[in-house]
Simulated scan of single mutants.
Amino acid sequence: MMENMPLLQLPVLLSPYTDELLSSWISRHATFYAVPPLVMLRHCLPEVRSVRAADLHVSEDQAVRLASMFAIEPAVLRRMTFIDVPKSSHRLLAARPTQYCTRCSPDGPEPAPILRSQLSGWRITCPLCGDLLRAENGREVPSPFGQYRLAARRGEKLLDDEAERGNRTWTSPVEIARLLLMRRVIWPLPREHELWRYRVLGAIIPDLDEVVAAGQVNLPTPAKPILPLQLRPALLAGVAIVERAGPEMLRMLREHMMGDNKVRFSDAAENMIAQAGELRASGQMQLI
């Protein structure tokens, strides 16, 4: 019955910060009104099971109801979420803040506001000021991949264009990133306990293998391709290099694999190449 009750605007409203995440804004209101964040959200959307769901899975009707309670336009509220981010790019959304901008991340009483960019696992720079982001733990660790800076910035833009604007070139940058994090083989074969270290990305960014070994870093799986901030430029640069080289580079990279892994890589790569061909043919037809 609560869905049919008229929604009342909150008597006191807190202004959202630029780029603030909707769940963060809700949590700050909850603190002000001394209630749990989920209680605050369910005051408007009783059917929602978690505050994080408000960032990812709000329908148009739910967005209108929330916007009414918080006295903002539904379009503005949607921009505080990841609702319009393609599902494929959701793999690059962190569950909690992994980075922040020393210039743009607001200070204040708990709970500290959380910006959308703090969960964007494809970013190495702040979308507001362009400064390099810093890891959430506050430690300033320089990336060992500084020589790939320009390519990394281009890879960041490719992934950002796909996530935030739905734009891509001949294929999905997210899918390229996933392929680059699949395991590869090297010769002579390493010892079994070292196999985890070698990824397809290392065939493009040779420094990666040594950096991973030295830091004993557990690289993520292709299912959730979010690298630690200091290693992220390597993946972004790899995405940019493959995107610029074109489909044939995917065929070249599969030669670094074997067995079932090679079959999975080949199937995914050929599907991407076929879609690129269809896209190119469609574009040519439009020119006729």
Score class of each variant (00 low, 15 high):
P127S: 06
E156L: 10
G130R: 09
Y148H: 10
R165S: 02
A163L: 07
S172R: 07
L150T: 12
C126F: 11
E162F: 13
T125F: 11
E140K: 13
R149I: 09
R184I: 04
F145V: 02
D161Y: 13
R154T: 03
I114W: 15
R154V: 04
E136S: 10
E136K: 12
A163F: 15
G155N: 07
L180Y: 00
L159V: 03
R149K: 09
R178V: 06
G146I: 06
R154I: 07
L119I: 00
T171P: 03
E164C: 01
N167H: 09
G121Y: 14
M182N: 01
R183K: 11
W170G: 00
C129V: 13
R183P: 00
I114G: 04
W170Q: 00
E162N: 01
C129E: 09
R178Y: 01
R178K: 06
L132E: 11
D131M: 11
K157S: 08
P173V: 02
P127L: 08
R149N: 08
I114Y: 14
V141Q: 08
L179S: 03
S172D: 01
P142F: 14
A151G: 04
Q147I: 11
R168S: 07
S172Q: 03
L158N: 01
L115D: 01
Y148P: 00
N137V: 02
R154E: 10
R183G: 04
G146N: 11
R165H: 14
G155A: 06
R116I: 08
L150K: 13
L179W: 08
R183M: 10
L180M: 06
L133F: 13
N167V: 15
K157Y: 14
E136N: 07
T169W: 14
V174K: 03
G166S: 06
T169D: 08
L132M: 14
N137D: 15
W122I: 00
S120F: 09
A135I: 10
R153F: 15
Y148G: 01
L133T: 02
R116S: 01
S172C: 05
P127C: 06
L115M: 10
I124R: 08
L128P: 05
A152Y: 03
R154Q: 13
S120A: 10
E140C: 08
V141G: 00
Y148E: 02
R134F: 12
P144V: 01
R154M: 15
R116F: 12
S172V: 09
R183Y: 07
R153Y: 14
R168F: 14
R123T: 00
A135V: 04
T125L: 13
Q147E: 15
L179N: 00
R139M: 15
R165C: 08
S143K: 11
R139I: 12
C129I: 15
L158K: 03
P144F: 15
S117C: 13
A135L: 10
L159T: 00
S172N: 02
T125Y: 14
M182Y: 04
D161L: 13
T169E: 08
E140H: 14
Q147K: 11
R134S: 12
P127M: 07
A135K: 06
T125G: 03
G121L: 10
R123W: 15
L158A: 02
G146T: 05
Y148N: 01
R183F: 14
L158M: 10
R153T: 03
W170M: 02
A151F: 12
R153P: 04
R154A: 12
D131F: 11
G138I: 02
G146E: 08
E162P: 00
D131E: 14
L132I: 09
P173R: 03
S143I: 07
L150P: 00
L150W: 11
E175H: 11
